[in-house]
């Protein structure tokens, strides 16, 4: 079966995330487990679309941001699951995944500049390997070409 996933929530390190250590794993982490499991079962993953606060996962954390330390020290209190974006990157390398970051959601959250938004083919330096910036048309396209499109929020 062909799946596409929409990752709508942050992995726990974003400024707008409100996860605490007592909260269940955020949607991004659940989506990652789901993706690994479906690939292990022989299904195919057409696209993972990062939207809403999920776009934070595609970028290296700002070294001044509160949760940035979690990138070099996974398992710390700030982000109990480490940096999910790095794990998506690794999974993408193994399975040639199409990881798409929504340009408008990234712009709205200040993760890319207006200029970078107009030239998404020039990937910005903070974008993790394996991710690409594109538009909402990719979301519609994913829904049309997949048997199941699942939102993780």
């Amino acid at each position: 079966m062909i799946f596409s996933l929409i990752v709508y929530s942050s992995s726990g390190h974003s400024p707008s995330g409100t996860e605490s250590s007592a909260a269940p794993p955020p949607g991004g982490q659940t989506a990652l487990h789901f993706a690994k499991t479906l690939l292990a079962h022989g299904h195919s993953l057409y696209r993972v679309f990062f939207y809403g606060d999920g776009v934070h996962q595609a970028f290296l954390p700002d070294s001044n941001a509160p949760g940035a330390a979690a990138y070099s020290a996974p398992g710390t209190h700030a982000a109990p699951h480490g940096h999910t974006g790095k794990q998506w990157s690794d999974l993408s390398k193994q399975h040639q995944l199409d990881l798409v970051v929504c340009v408008s959601a990234a712009l709205k959250r200040g993760l890319i500049s207006e200029e970078e938004g107009q030239h998404p083919e020039q990937a910005c330096l903070r974008l993790l390997p394996g991710f690409q910036i594109s538009g909402l048309g990719q979301l519609t396209d994913a829904a049309i070409h997949s048997d199941r499109t699942i939102t993780f929020r």
């Binding site: 939207y51 809403g52 709205k108 909402l136 979301l139 049309i144």
Partner: peptide, 19 residues
């Protein structure tokens, strides 16, 4: 506001694709 903008953007995009 951010999230309502996101949802409206997605709705309008899908409708442009004749869904």
């Amino acid at each position: 506001r951010l999230f309502t903008r996101d949802s409206i953007d997605a709705i309008l995009t899908c409708s442009v694709f004749d869904q």
